[in-house]
Every structure is written in structure tokens, then in C-alpha cells.
Design a protein around this nucleic acid. Structure first.
Lengths: 157, 157
DNA sequence: ACAAATTAGTTGCATAATGAACTATCTCTG
DNA sequence: CAGAGATAGTTCATTATGCAACTAATTTGT
């Protein structure tokens, strides 16, 4: 319960400063980051954010169905559905029957998909590193910690 | 230059973990925050994010023209233009001639706009405070500091 | 002073995001 | 085992976005 946020001492401030308003700051940062990173995966590889996320999840966790991707990423299921369709059409992932359930399908990267992922990862990490260059090791640790806490709290509200 | 990011010791990691990938984390958090806050300004007041931002800027800085809002918020000028049109149509802001420049127009909140803002602010701040409840005063200070640094760096890249 | 370049803001268009409604399959309960 | 409800995934209709092209007004350089 920070008293320095938009509050003074123990009294909540009645004014709002956009430059100190967390939702604004986080949104703004997310925007800049998306725009920057999209120069890699969108411009050079023709991937949308949802597509990239589906690929990253499959690369990281192996075989998954769409529902699981929805749960772990928090994306809309329609978003995932479209991404899956598009990636399948481009043969970056493939689908196969799930045992005991004909509604769902198992998804996995194809060879091409894995190759693309293998190309993309170092570039994405390099970009992230460039961004993180402005932080010390300690600051980075703090950041991860804070983001984790906020994410959890935002999920609760 | 943190060595704990997606790197180990001084060597950059070759794998990517989405859960530790800053762009993913920030985007995800921004998403959750937007969704939560929009329950206030969208559902209850019928405002879009751009509209809300225009209002907040005018409330904070008084008379502004669209260009200035574009600069200070980093929004697309078409986004601002549309928000301004919609807010004018709803009589939440008004436009008047700018002295010495017939291209631009000065924008300001109407009484209704100010009233709406006055209603909205306490609720927005209350929501922010709920989110910040998970942080100590020190953590909040750190967060603001880190977000500032990252924002600047993201602008450079 | 006047053509060229800038600037403020708008609009058109193609693409993307969103949420609700829908299909098909599966599970649970009596 | 039938029917109600839940679940996986798709699609439709509406709205939002981003970019570039455009208008109109202003500034600059010569």
C-alpha cells in the first residue's frame, strides 16, 4: 500500500497525473516494446503477436492443444484459433487427433516451424538484451519480482 | 546488462522462456490492467482508451491542441483525431480557434467533461491503489524508477 | 514575395481485434 | 442411457487500428 503513488502521506490524492498513473505507464511501455519487437517477427518473418506466442509456447512446451495455450498465455480463444489456423496453413505447425477427444487437437511445430523459431529466438533475445542494457543485474531482478507481483494482483482484481 | 535475463554468466542463453521474456511479461500485464480498468471507463462511461487519455491530458494540462497530445502521449495522430471528434460530438470537450494558426485548434474540457473527469478520477485512482496494494512503498518507488528507465530505453531502440 | 517544404489535422482503406453466437463433442446425473 | 450442461474450437458482425494519402494553413529560403 504505497503512500507515494497517487496518494500523499496516508491520504489518497484527488488528482491524477498521467505520468505517474501505473496503467498509463505500463500500457505505454508495452506499446513501445511491441512496436520495436514487431520489426523483427512481423516485418521479417510475417508473424503476428498471437502467432509468435503460439509458436513460442509449442517450442517451449512441446505438444499442446489450443485450450492449453489459451490458459497459459491468457489470450482470447478466438485469437489463438486464428493463429493456429494461419500457422497450420503456412505449415509452421501441424495438428493431429487427440486421443480420447475429438473436439481438441494436439498441436506441434513442424520442422519448418522449429527452424523459424530457431532463427527468431536469438534475435528476439538480442532485442530484449538491448532493452535490458539500461538496467543493472539487481534492477533486473527487482523488475522480474515486481512484474510477477503485479501480474498476480492484476489477475485478482 | 543483466546476466540473469535470458543469459547465464556472461553467455547469452540460446533458449527463450516466455515466462521470463520481458516483452511478453509487460504485454501481458498491460493487457490485464487495460481489461480491468476498462470496466470503469468503458463499461460505465463509454470511453475508449484514447478518449480517456485525451480527457486526462486536458484535465491535467488545461488547453492543448491535438498535436501536443500526440507528443505527450505518443499516440497515433489519427487516434487522437478520432478521439477528439468523438469527444466533441458528445460535448465533453470543445474546440476554439488558435491564435495565429488556423490549422490547429485549442481543445479544452467542457463543464460536462470536467464533471465526468471528476467522477472518474477517484475510481481510477482507487483501482490503481488496489493494484498497488501488493507492493511496499519501497517497491513502488523502485517500480516507477524501472519503468522510467525502460521507457526511455525502449524509445531509443 | 513566392515557390518549396513543413506542419496540423482528417480521412480512406485494408487489416486486426473483440465478444457473442454457433457447431461438434464430451461428461455427468438421475 | 437420455438429456442437460460443459467444453474445444470456429465464425460472424462490429469496432478499432495503422498507415498513407490528402487538405489546408504556415514557414522558410532565396
Amino acid at each position: 500500500m504505497p503512500d507515494t503513488a497517487n496518494s500523499t502521506d496516508q491520504f489518497v490524492r484527488r488528482e491524477l497525473q498521467l505520468e505517474r498513473f501505473l496503467p498509463y505507464l505500463v500500457n505505454n511501455l508495452a506499446d513501445r516494446i511491441s512496436t520495436g519487437l514487431s520489426r523483427i517477427y512481423a516485418d521479417e518473418y510475417g508473424l503476428s503477436i498471437p502467432e509468435w506466442r503460439v509458436i513460442a509456447n509449442l517450442a517451449e512446451h512441446g505438444v499442446l492443444n489450443a485450450k492449453r495455450i489459451v490458459i497459459t498465455t491468457g489470450m482470447e480463444k478466438s485469437k489463438v484459433s486464428r493463429a493456429v489456423k494461419s500457422l497450420t496453413d503456412r505449415s509452421l505447425i501441424f495438428q493431429r487427433r487427440t486421443e480420447n477427444d475429438n473436439r481438441a487437437r494436439d498441436l506441434a511445430l513442424t520442422g519448418t516451424g522449429e527452424a523459424l523459431y530457431g532463427e527468431l529466438v536469438p534475435r528476439a533475445l538480442a532485442w530484449e538484451l538491448q532493452l535490458l542494457e539500461c538496467l543493472s543485474t539487481g534492477e533486473y531482478r527487482d523488475l522480474m519480482h515486481l512484474l510477477g507481483k503485479l501480474r498476480e494482483q492484476a489477475g485478482r482484481i
